[in-house]
Nucleic acid binder design. Structure first.
Lengths: 357, 357
DNA sequence: ATTGACAACGAAAACGTTTGCGTGTTAACA
DNA sequence: TGTTAACACGCAAACGTTTTCGTTGTCAAT
């Protein structure tokens, strides 16, 4: 077992100083041709690679970005990660992942853990519990310590930072309008509780589309489901809830669901109740995941382009990190940077399959 | 913006030495009660947290483990990651993720990148290209540098390290036997090319089950598909291939597919060709993902327990890391460690749904 | 008064880099 | 021959810790 070779060892072996080795390897012209060759050859032979940790300590930057998400076994989030990873790698960064598991405390712990030097910046999506408690001090503190944050999808106005979001509202409006334009008049909404910002926006979109089409929204056509029902343990409960909902609203001719699970479940229930899709009932979901593609009939859905979100977020973060490098010491002009926090909106796309006419 | 406070700053501010601060914060009894209190209070007030990078450099260990997988937008892999993350966190480790995207060179690059000090050990699943080329030198080299590796799922005999695998063979045997016991006699196998070890094992399991039941395998009942068909762009091609297969084998009464995509596609095709499931044709897949749960009918499937795999892998790795800590300098006894590489087998489980009788 | 013990603290090395500055050698020039 | 400039290289600081080994100062015992 041969441990990794260090500058010091090379120096000792070749009887030169550490500085000489360092310079020779970075092709400094301060070093004589001969010694440089010798050192480079030796280093190559022993496969010398500088130690990242030492570099991080010296440069006070780690070239790694921290991702903090509520859940990883989730098509949307993993897609975003992929996007982040692509541009991170491309631009010479690594990614380190923390999972909040939708819990406030785990979010805080993870964040503090990583903020102590391990990462240069965060890309994150806020946990539900945090949204519920509306406690954002940990975000503000890390930003205050000079660690930039980019939020995506589940963002919040209270924290000033770069953000990447999806046009949930417009996407929902378009989806519902699509239903309306194909003849639906009693469109049901299956949504979550309000505290998740995106759920709220999608609900708004639903209402707005109805309004713009002079259709009166009915409370009875809106089903707000508890999140716990989305867990795989409770699929049957979810199905029962939706079935009950359908039974008490037998005029439903269209369904807009804020996620694909609700949508496919609605389709299941509809067919069970002998409705034909899309003839009797049309269905549109949100998030273009695996389920949408493979459901039968294929689910028309609002695609969020998770990968693009991730890519944009990574660019935003790295841009800011490298900008800080340059303007480094001009502390007085910090406000220049602070002013231009961007919020990038990634457009959704209505992917039409066979659950709509 | 107040940057993170360091020992040095505290020392300066309180007019003591750095060592005193360090000791006071670690509650060393070498420090007088009074100064200790003072320092601790000051540190708490300024929210002092030791810098991880500096600690890593000093301790020559990073307390982070590197995960290297082919793809992250993939139910199985993300489940494994979750498992890893759970125990990693629990045992005080972070995880950093690299994606090979099934490419050999990206696997090598990523590995070298992380091996230069960023991580203490790897948990990985080999990329297809690497399996195809059978070039494992990068694994061997990192192990040789003293960085332990734990492989999962896609493992390989050529590399000596801890491994966590699934009983692909037994799982497949049981699945096929289930089909046989419920009356199937012409069981088709839908599989991938041989070079992916798990595909190979599952194929073996299929053959073994037939043999043990005195059923003669027919080449015409085996469909080997190119991997590229699993990409979402080529779903239609996949479907056509399988349809063609069904048409030229009209006696098929059972299907065993080595992944859930093939399985659900087979179900789709079967229904399109007016077969009833499970009456006319029974179907079993591998990997209990989202598709299996939500397919109609529900797909009977061999569950791999990805989370358990991840948990086991993490335990294996961390155990080894911390063992190395203790036995640290007894280099002569290194062989003791080397001898006991474990291969943990996680049992699969046949989850019966409605695609079988 | 001398010794010893003990308490309370500081200096410095070490982890592996990079880099500003100093220094010795050589050769060219006046 | 003396001055100087270019060249080739070494020293040491710095990044933020922990820890070993001193170094003081105090006090009790001899």
């Amino acid at each position: 077992m041969k441990r990794k070779v260090t500058l010091k060892q090379i120096a000792k072996e070749l009887d030169v100083s550490i500085s000489t080795v360092s310079r020779a390897l970075s092709n400094s012209k301060e070093i004589g041709e001969e010694t440089r060759q010798k050192i480079q050859a030796f280093a190559k032979f022993y496969n010398y690679k500088p130690n990242n940790i030492a570099l991080s300590l010296k440069n006070r930057k780690t070239k790694t970005i921290g991702i903090l998400i509520p859940e990883i076994v989730h098509h949307f989030f993993s897609t975003v990660i992929r996007g982040i990873e692509v541009v991170a790698n491309q631009r010479g960064y690594n990614v380190i992942i923390g999972l909040s598991n939708e819990s406030f405390s785990k979010e805080v712990i993870n964040m503090e853990m990583l903020a102590n030097g391990s990462i240069d910046g965060f890309i994150l999506s806020i946990s539900k519990e945090t949204l519920l408690q509306q406690d954002y001090h940990h975000f503000k503190e890390t930003i205050n310590q000079g660690i930039p944050i980019v939020m995506f999808d589940r963002v919040v106005n209270e924290v000033e930072c770069d953000k990447v979001i999806v046009d949930d509202l417009i996407g929902s409006v378009n989806a519902v309008k699509k239903l309306i334009s194909t003849g639906c008049r009693n469109i049901a909404l299956i949504t979550t509780m309000d505290y998740v910002s995106v759920g709220k926006l999608r609900t708004q979109g639903y209402l707005q589309a109805l309004e713009e089409s002079k259709i009166h929204p009915k409370a009875s056509l809106i089903l707000k489901l508890d999140d716990s029902l989305a867990l795989e343990e409770h699929l049957d409960v979810l199905e029962k809830e939706i079935e009950q909902f359908f039974k008490s609203n037998n005029k439903i001719d269209g369904v807009f669901a804020v996620n694909e699970l609700y949508a496919v479940t609605a389709m299941k229930v509809a067919r069970k109740l002998d409705f034909n899709i899309p003839e009797d009932i049309q269905v549109i979901g949100f998030t273009d995941g695996v389920l949408s593609k493979h459901a039968r009939p294929g689910l028309t859905t609002v695609s969020q382009h998770g990968q693009k979100i991730g890519e944009q977020a990574a660019h935003l973060l790295i841009d800011r990190l490298e900008l800080e490098d340059d303007e480094g010491e001009i502390d007085d002009f910090d406000f220049v940077k602070d002013m231009k926090f961007k919020t990038v909106v990634i457009e959704t796309e209505l992917i039409e399959r066979n659950s709509t006419k």
